[in-house]
Design a protein around this nucleic acid. Structure first.
Lengths: 229, 229
DNA sequence: CTGAAAACATGACATTTATCAGTTTTTAAT
DNA sequence: ATTAAAAACTGATAAATGTCATGTTTTCAG
């Protein structure tokens, strides 16, 4: 198993690429690799994080519990993404839970290896800043979508998002399979409503399903649905 | 009129406090002060920003236009807050419009004075990063609120937010007066729905109004309304 | 393989929210 | 002060979404 950050491809995708050789060596020496089974938590809302998690494989949902007991999924993090940075940077407990939605392999990087570099290597800090700026922009988009689009539009959009970001398997199903409940938590609706709309899409022939797997049959139509037709 | 950043109180509240004397001097020499009348834009979605705006006085709404022609207000920026940083950091056009909701006095700081410091002073970069981490956390909260709370709850919450962040005038009205349309764009609902709920609150005696001004009469009740009673 | 639990699905109905079509009030310019 | 335009407001109605109840299918441990 690949075990040095210096050689890890994942690093290409995240802020760690802005670290110097020596800084990276220190990170690599202090990191630990963990296997997380589907359904298991990496951390939970309110936890004090002593480091960040770098995803090597698999996907995690980042969610926040609302007052009425429903989870809202705020982001799906996959290969190359770093989780928990916000908590480490602001030195607060985390406001999100991270739960694996597929089997995962992640590296845990203790916060000391990070904070020192944050204070001394402006390139690294700037790189982290750029990532966070991107996340913030996406969060703004989510706010607009949730408040201005119908559930039907948001579900159609979610399917396109899943295809674009996680691809399809050999049989034409979305490679990342989410439960109906997770789907409803992504778009911010009741599970029954999500199921109903999925059935409707199936009847219309824009998607096909097999168990909980979903495949896109008519992408053009799906795009129209996002626009509200 | 106070015109040196070095002496500007506003700086206390934002990332500029992490700049060195010399860096700040450069910023101060290159900045320009602008007066923006209520209703006027500072910048619009899609603009390429050549700098950031530091708010000395007044309030601006940061909003994004949705496909169906409605604005969604994502944030209200007031004294001490810096607008446009995300666009400057990621070197993209801005995804938000900034329009004054009260008369404003802002300083425009050309991007060159900022980017150099971002690349060389990690304390400054880290400070900006901390602010952005905070904004991102707030954005997550907004997502959860919009998707899980009713319009009534969100409007009650908005009033409490306005009181806590902008205070009240001598007559007990919220110091920041927003139009009904702006209120509806903050909570993400139709203007008529917002008006209806405001009338309902008035009938119940939790608020009182005078023209477009709104005053909180029963804060405890309002807090209950946020919780869904 | 089997049975219990979890997830999925659907119908009936209630509730929330948006939309449309107007009226009244406020604002601001002359 | 007058008046046109903008904003606030209200009612009626339609559409979207949530909730509850219940049946069916899938999953998975033993």
């Amino acid at each position: 198993m690949e075990s040095r950050c210096e050689n890890c491809i994942v690093r290409q995708f995240n802020s760690l690429r802005a670290m110097s050789k020596e800084e990276l060596k220190k990170v690599s020496d202090s990191k630990t690799t963990k296997i997380i089974k589907k359904g298991q938590p990496l951390f939970e809302e309110g936890d004090k994080l002593n480091g960040v998690y770098c995803v090597r494989n698999g996907v995690s949902k980042l969610s926040k519990l609302s007052a009425n007991g429903k989870d809202q999924i705020v982001k799906l993090a996959s290969k190359g993404e770093v989780m928990g940075q916000r908590s480490v940077i602001s030195e607060e407990v985390t406001n999100l839970s991270a739960i694996a939605v597929s089997d995962m392999e992640v590296c845990f990087i203790p916060k000391d290896s990070i904070t020192h570099t944050l204070q001394s290597n402006p390139n690294f800090t700037l790189e982290v800043l750029r990532h966070m700026a991107h996340d913030l922009k996406e969060a703004d988009d989510v706010i607009v979508n949730i408040s201005q689009k119908t559930v039907k539009q948001r579900i159609a959009e979610a399917f396109l998002y899943l295809k674009n970001n996680f691809g399809e398997d050999e049989d034409g199903f979305l490679a990342l399979t989410l439960s109906r409940e997770d789907i409803s938590n992504v778009v911010g609706t009741a599970t029954e409503s999500a199921i109903r709309i999925i059935s409707e899409f199936k009847k219309k022939g824009v998607i096909h399903t097999s168990g909980k797997k979903i495949g896109i049959k008519d992408e053009r139509k799906l795009k129209e649905l996002v626009e509200g037709f």
